[in-house]
Amino acid sequence: MRSLELTPTGSPLEATSAGAEARKLEVAGVSKVFRSRRNETVALDGVDLHVDDGELVCLLGSSGCGKSTLLSIVGGLETATGGAVFIDGDRVVGPGADRGMVFQGYSLFPWLSVARNIQFGLEVVNWPKARRAERVRELLAIMGLGEFADALPKELSGGMRQRVAIARALAPEPDILLLDEPFGALDAVTKRVMQDFLLSVWKRTGTTILMVTHDVEEALYLSSRIYLMAARPGRIAEEIVVPFDGSRGPTIMRDPRFLDLRAELSDLLVG
């Protein structure tokens, strides 16, 4: 269901091009069924969602609701049993550098330095040599990792490793960044620092981001829209527009609307 609705006021051509430009990611009727000898598990049942250009959207759900499976399908690491995923109108058939991914665990190459980790994607897709170094320097600066360029991942803290992973995913300038519970393994303080950091990176780079989380507060704090997922079968239960768009920052956590939404979403999550 690719929605290219024509507004009656505009000309058809304008409306079409505007709609196509705004939709970065479109997930249309995606289903995933895991079949084993004994039974069939419906992990995802007809999921529809979209992320517009420059948006930061969260997929919120408790464990087992299929949110990570959905992100893997968008990333092309798993194939959907039904439905399709489109990036800028192109159908996704496998993984590619246009969809950078960050995982919860330590997915850095342990034998490569921080700079070489960030550069990996650029080497793989054959960026011009001169621009590679420049891009790595730029990302090291954005991530505040300049002095750790030559360090090995094992010498870094958990938060720093995730910063490297985000930098590595951003390096080839992907159309969309897919984050799979990236801060799930971090302690509370580091997590907050990293959330603020992600917001600043998002504001600076304008990258479109789809993030999976089970943390209500995190979803409200970071995203402009939230898709709340329900389990068995995995589906979108609710779409929530988060109201604090322009003024995202620590202050919104004390906003009564934030607290109301947090309570409401927590209730919905518990079911």
Partner: peptide
Amino acid sequence: VPRELLNASYTLGAGRGTILRRVVLPH
């Protein structure tokens, strides 16, 4: 070799041969 390393490589645009040579072997 952790699956996440392979998945990360795939999403960075690496193909099978590249992953064998530059991820599986060094690891």
